[in-house]
Amino acid sequence: MTIAIIIIAIIALPFIIALFVPKQYTVERSVVINKPVHTVFEYMKLVNNQQYYNKWVMKDPNKKIVNTGIDGTLGFIQSWNGNSQAGEGEQEITGVTQNERITIEIRFVRPFKSTAHIYIITQPVTEHSTKTTWGMSGKSKYPLNLMSAIMTGPLGKDMETSLAMLKKNLEG
Rank of each mutant, 00 (worst) to 15 (best):
M1Q: 11
A4F: 09
I6H: 09
I7V: 15
I10M: 11
I11P: 08
A12M: 12
F15Q: 14
A18Y: 01
F20N: 05
F20D: 03
K23A: 13
V27T: 01
R29S: 03
R29P: 07
V32H: 05
I33G: 00
H38R: 09
F41R: 00
Y43A: 06
Y43G: 12
M44V: 13
K45L: 02
N48A: 13
Q51F: 08
N54H: 10
N54M: 12
K55V: 12
K59D: 05
N62D: 15
K63P: 05
V66Y: 11
G69V: 08
G72K: 02
F76H: 03
S84K: 14
Q85H: 06
Q85V: 04
A86V: 02
A86E: 04
G87C: 03
E90H: 15
E92C: 08
I93Y: 07
Q98W: 04
N99Y: 11
N99W: 06
E105G: 06
I106S: 05
R110A: 00
P111N: 14
K113E: 14
I118S: 01
S129A: 13
T133H: 00
T133M: 11
T133Y: 00
W134K: 03
M136G: 13
M136H: 07
S140N: 01
P143Q: 13
L144Q: 06
I150V: 14
I150E: 09
T152M: 11
P154N: 07
E160Q: 02
T161C: 08
L163K: 04
A164P: 07
M165F: 12
N169W: 08
